[in-house]
Amino acid sequence: MEKVLQLLQENARLSNEQIAVMLNRSTEEVAAAIDDYEKKGIICGYKPLINYEKAGIERASALIELRVTPRKDTGFDAIAEQIMSFEEVESLYLMSGSYDLAVTVNARTMQDIAVFVARRLAPIDGVLSTATHFILHRYKDASVSLQGEEIDEREEQV
């Protein structure tokens, strides 16, 4: 039932009935599969993809590179847990390469993010340095273009 995941990935609002028809399965089978995915934490949630610029809602985002010293007993995990508990943090990844943790942060204004970095992120024990990159414009998010719909240029021929 991996196809269920693919279909939901593209459009989480498809009904169980629609998915069942498309995959030639029963609605019960699809419902059970989704239930199972949710219980096992394979499907972790459903959210709308909001274009805040269009909605006119003030919102700033930044990508912050963190260099940290791993702790002897817990490695990166304890620091990561501390950082992810902040509600401003949208995503947190452990990275290969020249820094260790990549944090995306959302707040109302850039000033709010600056305060967040200075007062809460940088002082954490083990954080060696931070580099904050503000996001200026979103072209595409979660595989979806935020530039408006592509125009169907196909022409009826004959």
Partner: peptide, 25 residues
Amino acid sequence: SAIRKFFDIASEMEDVISLSIGEPD
């Protein structure tokens, strides 16, 4: 060909969903 008949009208309209095209998307 009569296939084009409504396509031409449709292309002048706003918010049209055209399920009339005969080629892959």
